[in-house]
């Protein structure tokens, strides 16, 4: 967690002084489940990319490229919308990935 600023160091009038500030906010630490992708099963339909509420599916030239783990909250929508016959995304406990 970043250190909270004092009153002298914050913008006047509670303005947010530039755009895109959500990107700086690490929501990835909120995860209790992590999406895991199976490249072999994925058909690159990108339903997950459309549905992810946090823009955390990375895609390039119409292909699935990975997850943005800094912003993925582990909501599981991607796994839910992945077509049942494909089943390329599964949710695993986050604790399995931590030491």
């Amino acid at each position: 967690m970043s250190k909270l600023k004092g009153w002298k160091d914050i913008p006047i009038g509670a303005i947010v002084p530039h755009g895109g500030t959500a990107f700086d906010y690490e929501t990835g630490s909120w995860r209790s489940f992590r999406p895991v992708h199976d490249r072999d099963k994925c058909i690159d339909c990108l339903d997950c990319w459309f549905c992810c509420p946090d823009n955390a599916i990375l895609a390039e030239e119409g292909k699935f490229k990975g997850f943005d783990m800094m912003h993925c909250k582990g909501c599981g929508i991607c796994a839910k919308v992945c077509p049942p016959k494909v089943g390329a995304i599964t949710m695993k406990p986050e604790s399995d990935f931590r030491e």
Binding site: G13, A14, I15, V16, P17, H18, G19, T21
Partner: peptide, 9 residues
């Protein structure tokens, strides 16, 4: 200079 005003605190 895009800014947000009237934001939540």
């Amino acid at each position: 200079q895009p800014v947000t005003m009237g934001s939540l605190a």
